[in-house]
C-alpha cells in the first residue's frame, strides 16, 4: 500500500483510463503546461496531441464537443479548469449532455466525464472560490462525484469510466496535496454508496469532499470532549445514498449536515429533507446545517477563513444539537 497525493491519484486514474483507445482528454492548458493543477503533467509527451488535446478558452464548445464525441461512441474526458468557469458551459452540460438520452427516447448515450475543480480557501476571491457541484446534482441525467481522499478519487474515477451517463467529477482545490493510502490491487469506489469514514454513536455528521476531512478533524476533537461522532462521506451527490445517511441518523438520533457552499439552496438542504422524511421519529433534535457564509468570497485571508466552515463551527453545531 502506497501513500500518494490526491493529485497523483487523479493522474493515475487518468493514465489507467488512457489505456482505452476511446478515451482522450481535452481542456485548457492541459498540454505543455501540464494542467492548471498539474494533474496532466507529462501526459502530452506520453500520449501525443491527438489524445491530449489543448483547447481554446471556450468552455461551451469544449464541453459540447466532449458530449458530441461521447454520443458518437468515444469516452472523452473534459477538464474545465475550475467549476466557476463551468457557468460558460452550462448550456452544453445541462441542456445537452444531460438531456440527450431522455429526449431521444434512449437512442443516444453520452458517457462524458467532466473533471473540474471546486472550493474556496486559496485566496483567489469571489469568482474563483465557489462550490457549485450541488447545482449539477439537482439535474436529472447527470452524475456528480465528490471524492475526499486519494483512495476515493482513484476509486470513484474508475467507477466514472463505467458510467453510461455524463459525470461531473469534482476535485477540491485544497485536497490536491493531501496524502492517503492507495492499494496497488485493483478496486473501485461505487457510485451511490456513502462511506462511513468514522463510526460513532452520538451524532451523524454528513459531509463530502474537503468538508468530510474537516468533519473528521472535528470528530477527533469531539471525541476528546466525550462525544462520539459518526462521519458519513457522501462520495457521490448523484446518485445520493439516502439509505446510509438515514441508517446512521436512526442510530445516533442527531444529525449535522456540512457543506462549503451557501446555505440557501445548498445541497445540504436536500440531505436534511431526506433525513426528516425518512427518520423524523428517531431525531432527538432538529437537524443542524453548517454552510458557507452567504457572501461572495472575500479575498483577504481572515475574511475568507471566516466564510468557510471549519472544525470549530462543526463542533459548535454538534454541541448545540446535543444540547451541550
Amino acid at each position: 500500500m502506497a501513500q500518494i497525493t490526491f493529485r497523483e491519484a487523479i493522474s493515475r486514474a487518468l493514465r489507467e483510463a488512457m489505456q482505452d483507445e476511446r478515451v482522450f482528454i481535452m481542456g485548457q492548458d492541459i498540454g505543455s503546461y501540464g494542467g492548471a493543477y498539474a494533474v496532466t503533467k507529462g501526459f502530452l509527451a506520453e500520449y501525443g496531441p491527438e489524445r491530449i488535446r489543448e483547447t481554446p478558452i471556450a468552455e461551451s464548445v469544449i464541453s459540447g464537443a466532449g458530449a458530441g464525441a461521447a454520443i458518437a461512441g468515444l469516452r472523452p474526458i473534459v477538464e474545465l479548469m475550475t467549476i466557476n468557469f463551468s457557468f460558460l458551459a452550462m448550456d452544453q452540460i445541462i441542456n445537452h449532455a444531460a438531456k440527450v438520452r431522455y429526449m431521444s427516447g434512449g437512442q443516444l448515450t453520452c458517457p462524458l466525464i467532466v473533471r473540474t475543480v471546486t472550493g474556496g480557501g486559496a485566496s483567489v476571491g469571489a469568482t474563483h472560490s465557489q462550490s457549485l457541484e450541488g447545482w449539477f446534482a439537482s439535474v436529472p441525467g447527470l452524475r456528480v462525484a465528490v471524492p475526499s481522499t486519494p483512495y476515493d478519487a482513484l476509486g470513484l474515477f474508475r467507477s466514472s469510466l463505467q458510467q453510461e451517463d455524463p459525470v461531473i467529477f469534482v476535485e477540491h482545490a485544497l485536497l490536491y496535496s493531501s496524502r492517503g493510502e492507495v492499494p496497488d490491487e485493483p478496486y473501485v469506489v461505487p457510485f451511490g454508496k456513502a462511506d462511513i469514514k468514522r463510526i460513532g454513536t452520538d451524532v451523524t455528521i454528513v459531509a463530502y469532499a474537503r468538508m468530510a476531512m474537516v468533519a473528521m478533524r472535528a470528530a477527533e476533537e469531539l471525541e476528546s470532549r466525550g462525544i462520539s461522532a459518526e462521519v458519513v462521506d457522501l462520495q457521490t451527490l448523484s446518485p445520493l445514498d439516502g439509505d446510509t445517511v438515514a441508517a446512521s441518523v436512526q442510530k445516533t438520533n442527531h444529525a449535522v449536515v456540512v457543506e462549503e457552499t451557501w446555505y440557501t439552496g445548498g445541497f445540504g438542504a436536500t440531505v436534511v429533507g431526506l433525513i426528516q422524511e425518512r427518520v423524523f421519529d428517531y431525531l432527538n433534535a432538529p437537524v443542524a446545517r453548517v454552510a458557507g457564509v452567504e457572501v461572495p468570497m472575500p479575498y483577504s485571508r481572515h475574511l475568507e477563513q471566516a466564510s468557510i466552515p471549519d472544525e470549530s463551527r462543526i463542533i459548535q453545531a454538534v454541541e448545540s444539537t446535543l444540547g451541550r
Partner: peptide, 27 residues
Amino acid sequence: FDAEKRFMGGYAIVGGQLPLAVGLALA
C-alpha cells in the same frame, strides 16, 4: 432523433447544436 439514420437530433436551444456537431466531427 433517429440514431440509426444518423439524424442526431433537433435541438431547441439556439446555437446549442453547434458544439455537439463539432464533437461528432471530432469523433
